[in-house]
Nucleic acid binder design. Structure first.
Length: 818
RNA sequence: GCCGGGGUGGCGGAACUGGUAGACGCGCUGGAUUCAAAAUCCAGUUACUUCGGUAGUGGGGGUUCGAUUCCCCCCCCCGGUACCA
């Protein structure tokens, strides 16, 4: 009597069994190869979304596969629990961010467990607990003593009506999301970490990351943006001031027709005191959003400051302009402008009627037209006095040397990377462990006084962080002189917490230290999995933190993540699922209706992990259908009773072919899961095998033996993807040991041997026929057989054969004239 | 704007190293089963075709015996853009 496939029953039972057996509890084992698999931990937003299901299923499939390879697999899970949404929810629902967050964690933990993910829950952590954040406070104070953190003013988005700082996300079309007021830029003092001190390492160590996608390494390299150039000093007339500019094209120095400074540049601010037009312009720039996209796409505008700069070589005077495209945060906040050889300068010069002076001409016959566009390629110098005739490369050095001798400039390596501003004027985050004393200045909170606890019993109303109006939080004594002082009320950027959680998972129970020797046992993470949207920021900050922790003696490697898999998004109707678009699909409903195995199978089958995945209700049904067929196939097989021993010497050709397919599939699936991570093609291969099996009409003893082999191998291959149904079917096939503890099957090489192969026959690159030849046929024999083929003859008769190309095992191409 | 990725049947995708374009799945069509439906099973399914073939992987050009794959130019979509996580 056949059992029906009821996923909910099977899955609950199997999950209970894993729980009882402590299947996924992991302890360090010196006798086994370790494998640390980590999927980016979620923000506890309230419920899982499809992106989570995809992310964690990928991690679980890899973890289970590696376990079948005999490795000691660590797969932990936790919560990136600080962040803005908790404050928004607090305002909306009048509930404290802490309780909202903890409730969400409890609910989402249940959802993850229902998906059958093999986590070691004993290592669970939440970043909003003092047990976690105390250690990053501790690290920050260490870095403070080392001089790796500092305070300076930086621009934020400011809403003048709500009197609060806005995240870029809270700025909609340049206005506050809540009151629609025009957002302003405001400069306020903030803490920065000197990531630029590590720029060179962060760039160079990308070479160690051969297990990372090339595109992510490229993005990080571009983000760090190392450039070699020259810092050049321009004098300012009627003053002793020096205006430094940074350029990567010193060869164009003689073509400078103006100098542009950022609106917030001290020189512009000073000139504005006596210049109404400039004042207005700076005011306008203040109304710009702080995001790079907004800055760069805004129309290029400027105002002359009235100041004149002195050219360091010729002594000529060139005007100083304030311009909205010059960023105060990059280089020196000032650039020299060479309209003839830079497109942005060119457009700006045309707009404001500034001179365009050509100083570079091509060394080849490249065409250019300065009346239409700038000539931006390198070449040879003209109109450049003593530097005429030099190539751009030679002129780079000649001009740099000249300036250095004159004390008017020097070569410099510059990075696009800016120091990391970690201050947030928000409540729901880790308090910055600094005390501001009127006499001693900024003082780190002593180790004994850590953690600085964030009060959790608060009311958030949108008018700014509640701890900023809690004297009981911020009033304190200076740890150095004992005078009355005030605590920082800003909190850390939440990227702070997510920059080291991977390490804490190795020793989450240690209450004496940030990390212990277990960190070096498990790190680096062997496989890290997360969204491509994290390609730069999170992954760069985590790499930076790893190096900080290394230099503190906490870990010994240079890099945290050996292999990286960047998963694509889950889309519906071609766009990202989002509440605002109303195109979300709740994974819970999916699990409730079809079970976790179907959800997992669909996620793995619908697209390769790195590509975006288009949601489809119908395709989910298809995945479910396959599992039902699989279930039935096993049931029908076992109903026929005992299976005889397989004797490979007596098999029919059909059964030999089936065994070949079984072991070809096994080879492919192992490669697809283990190396390529293309779970979709792995599943397709198993489906093909099952389709072949379904067509088999032979029900001899030996056929049943081969079917048993096929089903066993199919179940083992699918078990990392759909572990619950496979657990059950494995038992039905007569095994006592649980499938989760079984090793990956061995390929029988002898089954793969083939005596005949099919070759494609092309004439002039077009497929004309197929021929079957013995596997070890030589080129001449293949040629003869192909030429003799009727269909081929038609296309080659009466024609001169120019060439014959034979690709062994694949095809033969006959090239004829005419 | 800048950086990165993508574009293949009606749809999701496959083709891994330049060698059978469209595996596998969905959908659709026809059939079987059924009182009927659902479910299930079987067959077919790129377009055009004089049934020999021809065209075809966003558009245009190039390299090659052979290009979805390599090169050049262009178009469109998506991600990131430093205070969303």
């Amino acid at each position: 009597m056949q059992q029906e496939y009821i996923p909910a029953d099977i899955e609950t039972a199997v999950q209970q069994w894993w729980h009882d057996q402590q299947t996924f509890r992991t302890v360090e084992d010196p006798h086994k190869e370790k494998y640390y698999c980590l999927a980016m931990f979620p923000y506890p937003s309230g419920q899982l979304h499809m992106g989570h299901v995809r992310n964690y299923t990928i991690g679980d499939v890899i973890s289970r596969y590696q376990r079948m390879q005999g490795k000691n697999v660590l797969q932990p899970m936790g919560w990136d629990a600080f962040g803005l949404p908790a404050e928004n929810a607090a305002i909306k629902n009048k509930v404290a961010p802490a309780s909202w967050t903890y409730d969400n964690i409890d609910y989402m933990r249940g959802q993850l467990q229902r998906l059958g993910l093999g986590y070691d829950w004993e290592r669970e952590l939440a970043t909003c607990t003092p047990e976690y954040y105390r250690w990053e406070q501790w690290l920050f104070t260490r870095l403070f003593e080392k001089g790796l953190v500092y305070k300076k003013t930086a621009a934020v988005n400011w809403c003048p009506v709500d009197n609060t700082v806005l995240a870029n996300e809270q700025v909609v079309d340049g206005c506050c999301w809540r009151c629609d007021t025009k957002v302003e830029k405001r400069e306020i003092p903030q803490w920065f970490m000197k990531i630029t001190d590590y720029a060179e390492q962060l760039l160079n160590d990308l070479d160690q990351l051969s297990g990372w996608p090339e595109q992510v390494r490229a993005m990080q390299a571009n983000w760090i943006g190392r450039s070699e150039g020259v810092e050049i000093k321009f004098g300012i007339t009627e003053s002793d001031e020096v205006l430094s500019v940074y350029t990567t094209r010193p060869d164009t120095l003689m073509g400078v027709s103006y100098v542009a400074v950022a609106a917030e540049h001290p020189l512009a601010l000073r000139a504005a005191q006596t210049n109404i037009e400039l004042q207005t312009f700076i005011e306008q720039c203040r109304q710009m959003e702080t995001s790079e996209a907004a800055m760069e796409t805004a129309e290029k505008q400027g105002v002359a400051t009235g100041l004149m700069a002195i050219h360091p070589v010729t002594g000529e005077l060139v005007p100083v302009w304030a311009a909205n495209f010059v960023l105060m945060g990059y280089g020196t906040g000032a650039v020299m402008s060479v309209p003839a050889h830079d497109q942005r300068d060119y457009e700006f010069a045309n707009k404001y009627g500034l001179p365009i002076k050509q100083v570079i001409e091509p060394t080849d016959s490249a065409e250019y037209d300065l009346s239409k566009a700038a000539f931006t390629a390198k070449g040879a110098l003209i109109n450049s006095q003593q530097f005429d005739g030099l190539t751009s490369a030679d002129a780079f050095n000649a001009i740099a040397d000249f300036l250095e001798q004159q004390n008017k400039g020097e070569k410099q390596v510059n990075y696009r990377l800016r120091d990391w501003g970690v201050s947030r004027q928000r409540y729901w985050g880790t308090p910055i462990p600094i005390i501001n004393c009127p006499d001693c200045g900024a003082v780190a909170v002593p180790e004994n006084d850590l953690p600085v606890r964030l009060p959790e019993d608060v009311v958030v109303d949108g008018s700014g962080s509640p701890i900023k109006s809690m004297p009981e939080f911020y009033q304190c004594a200076c740890p150095q002189c004992g005078a009355a002082a005030e605590r920082e009320t800003d909190t850390f950027d939440t990227f702070f917490e997510s920059s080291w959680y991977y390490a804490r998972f190795t020793c989450p129970d240690n209450d004496k230290a940030m990390l212990d020797e277990r960190a070096d046992h498990w790190l680096p993470v062997d496989q890290y999995i997360g969204g491509i949207e994290h390609a730069v920021l999170h992954l760069l900050y985590a790499r930076f933190f790893h190096k900080l922790m290394r230099d503190e003696g906490l870990v010994s490697g240079d890099e945290p993540f050996k292999n990286l898999l960047t998963q694509g998004m889950v889309l519906k109707d071609g766009t990202k699922m989002s509440k605002s678009k109303g195109n979300t699909v709740d994974p819970q409903a999916l699990i409730d209706q079809y079970g976790a195995d179907t959800a997992r199978l669909f996620m793995m089958f619908a697209a390769p992990p790195e590509q975006s995945l288009e949601w489809s209700d119908k395709a989910v049904e298809g995945s479910n259908r396959f599992l039902k067929r699989l279930w039935r196939s096993v049931q029908e097989h076992i109903e026929q009773g005992e299976v005889a021993e397989l004797d490979i010497d007596v098999l029919s050709d059909e059964l030999k072919a089936l065994r070949r397919q079984i072991h070809q599939t096994l080879t492919k699936v192992g490669d697809d899961i283990g190396r390529r991570h293309t779970f979709n093609t792995a599943i397709a291969a198993v489906m093909e095998l099952m389709n072949t099996l379904g067509k088999l009409t032979d029900n001899s003893e030996q056929a049943r033996a081969v079917i048993q082999e096929a089903l066993e191998i199919a179940i083992l291959m699918l078990s990392p993807i759909t572990p619950h149904i496979c657990h059950q079917l494995w038992q039905l096939l007569g095994h006592d040991e649980a499938v989760v503890n079984v090793s990956w099957p061995q390929v029988d090489e002898s089954a793969l041997v083939q005596d005949k192969v099919e070759l494609m026959v092309q004439v002039n690159g077009k497929l004309r026929s197929k021929v079957s030849v013995v596997a070890d046929a030589d080129k001449d024999a293949i040629e003869l057989i192909a030429m003799a083929d009727e269909n081929v003859k038609r296309f080659i008769e009466d024609k001169e054969i120019r060439k014959v190309i034979v690709v062994p095992g694949r095809l033969i191409n006959i090239v004829v004239a005419g």
